[in-house]
């Protein structure tokens, strides 16, 4: 799956897709591949706030648990309710239906600290 170039990426394998003053957040194809079958996602509730590169939740596969780090800061406006019933959406469509949360983005400079799709691909390549 090609890495979509309509969004920015963090070294923690999360993506941020801006949409006006809102942004949606998810994990990358590489991340879901590494985690394997996702069985549970623990996300911040709407109304809470997250900070860039800080812990915002957890994602669990059958035999692993990983912390999620938000690629941007802001107030959470929604978390993906579909993942409660179907956490596997993160596996099948990480850039689409498997999104995690939406936030009201504040600091536009934050996006500059993230990578482009091409840079992210190179970054992942470097991980071997």
């Amino acid at each position: 799956m090609p890495t979509p170039d309509d969004r920015r990426y963090s070294k923690e394998h999360e993506w941020l897709k801006a949409d006006g003053d809102e942004g949606s957040i998810g994990i990358t194809e590489y991340a879901q591949e590494q985690l394997g079958d996702i069985v549970y996602v623990d996300l911040p509730e709407a109304g809470s706030s997250v900070a860039q590169f800080e812990k915002m939740g957890e994602i669990e596969s059958v035999k692993a648990v990983s912390e999620l780090f938000s690629p941007a800061g802001g107030e959470v406006t929604a978390s993906n309710a579909a993942l409660v019933e179907k956490p596997e959406l993160v596996n099948t469509d990480p850039y689409g239906e498997g999104w995690l949360i939406r936030i009201k983005t504040g600091d536009t400079a934050e996006a500059d600290k993230l990578m482009s799709a091409a840079d992210y691909d190179a970054f992942v390549q470097g991980l071997g």
Binding site: V39, E60, S61, V62, K63, A64, V65
Partner: peptide, 9 residues
């Protein structure tokens, strides 16, 4: 639900 347990978490 083994991710609750010590050998994973």
């Amino acid at each position: 639900l083994q991710t609750r347990e010590q050998h994973i978490r």
